[in-house]
Amino acid sequence: MKPIEDPRLTAMGLLSEVHAGLAARMQPVFSAAGLSEADFETLVRLGRSPGERLRMTDLAAQTGLSTSGVTRVVDRLERDGLVTRVACAHDRRTSYAALTDAGRERLESVLPLHLADIESCFTGLLAEDQLEAFLAALRTIRDVVRPCATAGAERISPART
């Protein structure tokens, strides 16, 4: 077999094509809500975290953004009143990004449409056993290529203020 015909190239190509296609399909819902893909991912990560907050460094690790990139996203979301920064009571060097009531409401307004998109062009195309196997395979790969993608999720965050 020629290297150009290697199925590993096919796997990477398919993954890239699927990601690009899904991102394009999801963007109109985000745009209609005044959010970028990074904004939405940030709100989801906060919404799914204990206390609806994450340390800024954990948020950067989970989203795959640089620390300056996550700072820019949080700055924008904070200006829009969707998140707030909360200082850590025990460590002055640490701050948290926390979902506000307005952020939770924006997220809740987008989720039904987003979930419908996911169902129609992604998860709904797979049988239950295929989806379970697919999710397990993705987690296996994610744990190798982005082991910090769940940073902060296991930690109990301070109560919301």
Rank of each mutant, 00 (worst) to 15 (best):
L115V: 05
R146P: 00
C148H: 12
A136T: 10
D129M: 04
S16M: 08
L113F: 13
T123W: 01
T63S: 13
Q62N: 13
A61Y: 04
R146A: 15
T94I: 14
L22P: 00
V70K: 03
L35C: 05
S157D: 10
A11D: 10
L46W: 01
G34A: 13
T161R: 10
K2P: 15
G51K: 11
M26F: 14
R104D: 09
A97I: 04
V18S: 08
D6K: 02
D101K: 06
A136H: 14
V29Q: 14
I4N: 11
G13N: 13
Q27E: 15
V144P: 06
V145F: 10
G21W: 11
C88K: 06
I141N: 03
P7D: 06
L82C: 09
T10A: 14
M26E: 12
A60Y: 05
S66Y: 13
L135F: 06
M1P: 09
G69E: 10
S109W: 08
V86R: 07
V18A: 12
A137N: 10
L138C: 10
R48H: 01
V145M: 06
A87F: 03
A159T: 11
G21I: 01
V83E: 02
G21F: 12
S120E: 14
E128S: 10
D101T: 03
L43W: 04
T140H: 13
L111E: 15
T94F: 07
R53T: 02
S68Q: 10
R85V: 01
R92W: 02
R79K: 13
E52P: 00
A133D: 10
A149H: 15
L126R: 12
A116V: 08
A98T: 03
T150M: 04
D80P: 00
G64I: 03
L126W: 14
F40N: 00
F30R: 13
F134V: 00
T42V: 07
R76K: 09
D129Y: 10
R85D: 04
T94H: 13
C121Q: 05
V144A: 15
P3Y: 04
H90V: 00
R146K: 15
Q62A: 09
L14P: 00
P147E: 02
R146C: 12
S31Y: 04
T42Y: 05
L107T: 04
F134A: 02
V145D: 09
F122S: 02
G47F: 07
L115Q: 14
R48T: 07
V29L: 11
A38E: 11
G34L: 08
L126N: 11
A127I: 01
L113K: 14
L77G: 08
E78T: 10
A136F: 06
D80C: 07
C121A: 04
P28G: 15
A127C: 03
G64E: 04
R8S: 08
D39A: 06
S16L: 14
P112W: 12
R72G: 07
Y96Q: 09
T57E: 08
I141W: 09
A60P: 08
V73E: 08
E108T: 09
